[in-house]
């Protein structure tokens, strides 16, 4: 079942269209990546799913019914630019946000103390936020976001500004949350995190949804007819041997041991047997594999193609 479904959502701001007829579906229990260049409309979409702003047209469904204010208590939101009240004490502040989310005083206090212990930050309870370092504040913010055990977690650029240690902590927590049954949507520019974490993605460019689907499927789709060769020999003679069966030379570089590693895209329908035979005849092939494009490549290719079209 889809926990969130956006149906033909559009949103217009003074002078520009932030979202134009965007649809997507987030399966329950998945980790869903929302990708796109800066200013594509990701944050606007996340705000709409959070019931912060309403779409001009289109509908957002939550667990099968139309999203209402009450559903927001089942959502945890970590905004892109994270903020806390600087002059307020950490514990009081966490209690305030927990109670706003509808938790009772007792539950909020018990759960907060658990989390603070888990992160090893119990001694911060009575510190003011302004006394904390950025990384410390991010931990507090994260706890506030997940405290009320929301079914759906929305992280806007969760990795920006995190040091590698905190980023790993966050990754582990995201996986842990999913294991416990939560669905996670996050927007990011960090493509390696998409490859390691996301089940599905949507790529938004210039307020349109230009690519949606399962990460593996997408990578295989973009990776069709792409092969990587590692060999000793002359790369030009190999290219010459393939002739016009090669559509593009994606990359080629020399390893430390003197071997060349080359990634090529072939014309659709080129037989695998044929490729291996040609390569074997021309150079001393040491490895051969199908090549999956990185999400980085997919992102850049899709966005550039889309920009060219429009």
């Amino acid at each position: 079942m889809d926990i969130v479904k956006a149906d033909h959502v559009s949103k217009q701001f003074v002078g520009h269209k932030a979202l134009d007829d965007v649809s997507l579906a987030v399966p329950e229990g998945s980790i869903y990546g929302l990708l796109g260049p800066n200013g594509a409309g990701k944050t606007t979409l996340l705000r709409i799913i959070n019931h912060i702003t309403a779409p001009d047209s289109g509908t957002v469904y939550f667990c099968g019914h139309q999203l209402t204010q009450a559903d927001v208590n089942s959502i945890g939101y970590l905004p892109e630019e994270r903020g806390l009240y600087k002059k307020m004490k950490v514990g009081e502040q966490a209690m305030f946000f927990a109670r706003l989310k509808g938790m009772s005083k007792h539950d909020a206090s018990a759960q907060l103390h658990q989390w603070f212990e888990k992160f090893g930050i119990t001694e911060w309870w009575n510190k003011k936020v302004e006394e904390l370092s950025k990384g410390m504040a991010q931990k507090v913010q994260f706890i506030i976001t997940v405290l009320h055990n929301p079914k759906l977690l929305i992280f806007d650029e969760p990795f920006s500004g995190f040091d590698p240690i905190n980023a790993k902590l966050l990754k582990d927590e995201i996986l842990e949350l999913r294991k416990n049954g939560a669905t996670i949507i996050f927007s990011t520019h960090n493509m390696s995190s998409v490859e390691t974490l996301c089940d599905e993605i949507t790529l938004i460019n210039k307020s349109h949804n230009i690519l949606s689907g399962n990460v593996n499927e997408i990578r295989h789709r973009f990776g069709a007819d792409r092969y990587q060769f590692t060999f000793a020999g002359d790369e030009r003679s190999l290219l010459a041997a393939f002739g016009d069966r090669v559509v593009s030379n994606i990359s080629s570089d020399r390893n430390e041991d003197g071997n060349t590693r080359m990634t090529l895209r072939f014309a659709p329908g080129t037989s695998l047997h044929d490729i291996i035979a040609t390569a074997n005849d021309t150079v001393a092939l040491s490895s051969f594999s199908a090549d999956l494009p990185s999400m980085d490549e997919i992102f850049i290719t899709s966005v550039e193609n889309n920009n060219r079209k429009s």
């Binding site: 959070n50 019931h51 912060i52 630019e81 903020g83 806390l84 009240y85 509808g102």
Partner: peptide
Amino acid sequence: NNRVLEIIVTSI
């Protein structure tokens, strides 16, 4: 400025 607002308006 410190975007506390975005968290609060999800609840109120």
